[in-house]
């Protein structure tokens, strides 16, 4: 091993190509071997002309991309996606900050709390989505039953069929299933902050709020960043919640880019895997732009280089 701790900056070392390949090789092999090839296939599919059966009939050039861009529901879908991603992301980060704090404290029942929080994560999204479909239904939904008997509403609320409530319902469930992951990443971050830092703050006479904003939040930054970046991607690509809660609604009124992509291939009159692949490529580019923008705004390189 040639590299020694002689590095510049914050004490990192420089490494040559051979060493790099040794440490990163397995990861690169997996990524290139398993992810890259299908990604290339996706691009190839997006420039191909397919029959409704999936049979490739020839090259399509940019036709699929054009048809996606000209799709009458595209603007609705994009708007839905922005609302969905922004709302779920913000809600889950904000709530998780509190939740992680709570989970990090020592109290009777903490273990129970930690186990309970893991459950929505442990249950598969497909099942959780189906479960909430039952809970939120107009006729047999238990939530409506509760609201009715508590006198909060006079008639049931059509959470999944009424256009005013569909997106908020999806966002609620989407946030609920995103919380465990986010809270645990933040909890791990909190636990990475050494206790003596707080000790020092206490000596300096900092109030709890000051300690939180001046010490906890800045030190939590790497964890927050990981949680945010990955959540952007996961929420963008979150399929089961949007698809299942929305599957009674005709058309694309409440679809996001990912369910739009799926419906283009299998559920709508377009039934075109080429168009769907083009939408898939757009989806990746969209995520890429959002993530890069976020990384730039949040000074990601500075944070990870530190």
């Amino acid at each position: 091993m040639t590299a020694t701790a002689t590095g510049s900056g914050a004490g990192t070392s420089r490494a040559g190509l051979g060493v790099t390949a040794l440490w990163l090789g397995p990861a690169l092999a997996l990524i290139v071997g398993v992810v890259l090839y299908p990604a290339v296939e996706l691009v190839r599919a997006s420039t191909s002309d397919y029959s409704i059966t999936g049979l490739r009939k020839g090259a399509a050039g940019a036709d699929n991309y054009r048809r996606v861009l000209e799709h009458p529901d595209l603007s609705t879908v994009l708007l839905n996606t922005v609302v969905w991603v922004a709302a779920v992301l913000v809600l889950s980060i904000v709530i998780s900050l509190g939740l992680a704090q709570l989970m990090s404290k020592e109290f009777f029942g903490r273990r129970l709390l930690r186990w309970a929080v893991i459950v929505p994560w442990a249950a598969s999204l497909v099942i959780t989505a189906r479960l909430f479909m039952l809970l939120l239904d107009y006729n047999y939904g238990i939530l409506n039953q509760v609201l009715l008997s508590a006198g909060i509403v006079d008639t049931p609320v059509d959470f999944l069929g009424d256009d005013r409530f569909t997106m908020p319902s999806m966002i609620g469930v989407g946030t609920f299933v995103t919380l465990p992951f986010t809270a645990y990443v933040l909890l791990a971050g909190l636990k990475g902050i050494p206790d003596d830092v707080y000790e020092a703050a206490r000596m300096d006479g900092a109030s709890p709020w000051q300690a939180y904003t001046r010490i906890t939040l800045p030190l939590l930054r790497p964890a927050l960043m990981v949680a945010t970046v990955l959540n952007i991607i996961y929420v963008f690509n979150s399929f089961p919640i949007v698809y299942t809660l929305n599957d009674r609604n005709p058309g694309f009124a409440h679809d996001t880019t990912i369910t739009f992509m799926y419906k283009l291939a299998f559920k709508s009159a377009e039934k075109s895997v080429g168009m769907s692949a083009a939408a898939g490529v757009f989806n990746v580019l969209l995520i890429l732009v959002v993530v890069l923008a976020y990384l730039r705004i949040s000074n990601w390189k500075e944070a990870t280089d530190a």
């Binding site: 296939e41 996706l42 970046v229 799926y262 898939g280």
Partner: peptide
Amino acid sequence: VLATQMFSPTALVVGIYRE
């Protein structure tokens, strides 16, 4: 590494099958 997450498996499944 991060980019690998941006592809939803639903979009890649055809290529994964082929591979």
